Every structure is written in structure tokens, then in C-alpha cells.
Simulated assay, not measured.
Amino acid sequence: MRIPFIKMHGLGNDFVVLDARADALPEMTRAKAKALADRNTGIGCDQLILLQPATDGSLADFRMRIFNHDGGEVEACGNASRAVALLHGTSARVETASGTISLTPSEGGASVDMGAPRFDWDAIPLDQPLDTMHMPVGWEALEAPDAVNVGNPHVVFFVDDEHTVELDRLGPLIEHDPLFPDRVNVNVASVSSGAISLRVWERGAGLTRACGTGACATAVAAIRRKLVTSPVAVHLPGGTLTIDWHPGGTITMSGPAQESFRGSFEWDDFG
């Protein structure tokens, strides 16, 4: 079976998009998603995105499923949401594993209503009750982080210089710490002149050039700590996102997305 795909990216965080809204595909498995995401023997991507009909068409226009580079299915991806908005071409309500989000395409990108952040320890989730604004935990020099769930779990460390952190070494240690039963995305950020500079270790994907949900979680944490005001620019290695959030409201993320190329593959060649 020959399957078409669209390769897209948001600030260098790249995706293989399979559009199965009109023509159904066989069941996606962890092994197949991992094989397609492999940069040496597959198409190559940070995340595989599968578009399908909505479970309930009265609540959403279509469904988006997200598979990380390791093949595991996750709840949310902000950069992929912008890419899908660009691909869809008009405003849409999209069903995800973390709830329904709203997409609005714009020139060269999109704005995404990512929903309201969650801060309760059991909504992150953590394995024990802790203050999620200044968690009394640390890993070497990384201490007292915030924990925020923005559709997927994040821990945010504010440091003087995010470039000095050995995130490729500490990221997987924190991601797999027993404190986080669903694992966690790891953000290290510095604040200067009212803007945020950010690096992210993504759960199941590793270091990426950009992470939309990481930018949302970090902006929310910085606003809660009164380090910045909304809207705030979040600078990532791949480029800049604008995050708008006020306590009690939902998060709006705005930024670019781009289609790279299209192709096709044989379904049975992978996984």
C-alpha cells in the first residue's frame, strides 16, 4: 500500500504528517511510528502526526494523534498544531489526547489556543504532593523548578545561562526520574529584557530545535513567578514564538510553520 506523507516543521521541530481524514490507514503501532521517524532508515522526524476523523464531529473538525521519535504516543505538540493549521488552511477545532484545541492559520504560520495550564501535583502528574511553583527538588545545579501541564507534562528550570546546562546529559535523567510517573519534558530558561531564552529536552524525542508546549509551559511559569509579563517572546534555537497567557485563562501560542516537501512510502516496508 503506497501512502502519501507531508514533511513539515515549526522552527525546525519537524514532522511527518499522515492525512487519514478521508482515506483510513491501518492501525498505527509504536514500532511503525518509530521506524518512520528514524532519520537513517525511515523518513525522519521528531514527531509523526496522524490526522483522522474526529471521534465526535459535533465537538471537533478532526482528530490529531502525535507519536514521538521513540514511537510513543503523546498528548500534545504545539509546533505540530501550527503545522497542521497551515496544512488545513482554515480555522478548526481539533481533538487531541489532551482535549480539544483551536487552530487559526495566519500568514506563514498559525495561532493555537492550547487550553488552560494545570498546576495540581496530580495533574502534572507527580508521584507525591509537592508545591509545583517552587518544587523542593533538584538535579545537580538544576533546582527548585516549576511543574506545569499544558496538555503534556513539563518541568521548568530558570537559570542564568541556559547554554551552560548539560541538557543532553541531565535531560534524560530528569525525564525518567520516578518523581514523574508519565516521564516529563525538561526546560531550561533564562530571562532577559522581558523575553525568555529556552532550550528543551523533549520526552521521547531528546533535544529539539523548538518545542511549542515547552515554550507555553515556560512562559506560564515565568508569568506566575512575575519574571515577565504577557505576551512574551520565547526564543528557541530554531526561532521565536509568542505566548499570551493570563492567570485563569487559556494559552495562545503564535508562530511560524512551513511545509518542506511531500512524498510517499510503502506501508509494509516499516515496522
Score class of each variant (00 low, 15 high):
I3K: 06
I6Q: 02
M8A: 12
L11D: 04
D14T: 05
P26F: 06
A31W: 12
A31N: 14
A33M: 10
K34W: 14
L36D: 11
A37V: 02
G42K: 07
L48G: 01
L48I: 06
L50A: 02
L51A: 11
A54N: 05
G57E: 13
G57I: 09
G57S: 11
F62W: 09
R65T: 03
I66Q: 02
F67M: 08
D70H: 05
V74D: 06
V74C: 08
A76E: 02
A76V: 00
G78P: 08
A80L: 13
A83V: 10
V84K: 01
L87I: 02
S91Y: 09
A92G: 05
V94T: 01
G99T: 05
T100E: 14
I101D: 02
S106W: 00
G108V: 00
G115E: 14
G115S: 03
P117Q: 07
P117L: 09
I124H: 06
D127P: 01
L130R: 03
M135T: 15
P136Q: 14
E140A: 15
E140V: 13
A141I: 15
E143V: 15
V148F: 10
N149Q: 10
G151E: 03
N152R: 02
P153G: 12
V156I: 08
F157G: 08
F158P: 04
L167V: 05
L167G: 11
G171E: 00
D177R: 11
P178M: 06
F180Q: 08
D182C: 13
N187P: 08
N187F: 05
V188N: 06
L198F: 11
G204Y: 01
G204Q: 00
A205H: 00
G206C: 13
G206I: 15
A210E: 03
A210I: 04
G212V: 03
G214I: 08
A215C: 09
C216T: 10
T218I: 11
A221R: 09
A222L: 02
P231E: 10
V232S: 06
V232W: 07
G238L: 12
G239A: 02
G239H: 00
T242Y: 07
P247N: 07
I251D: 04
M253H: 03
M253Q: 04
S254L: 00
E259W: 00
F261L: 13
G263P: 09
S264Q: 15
E266F: 13
F270L: 01
G271P: 10
G271I: 04
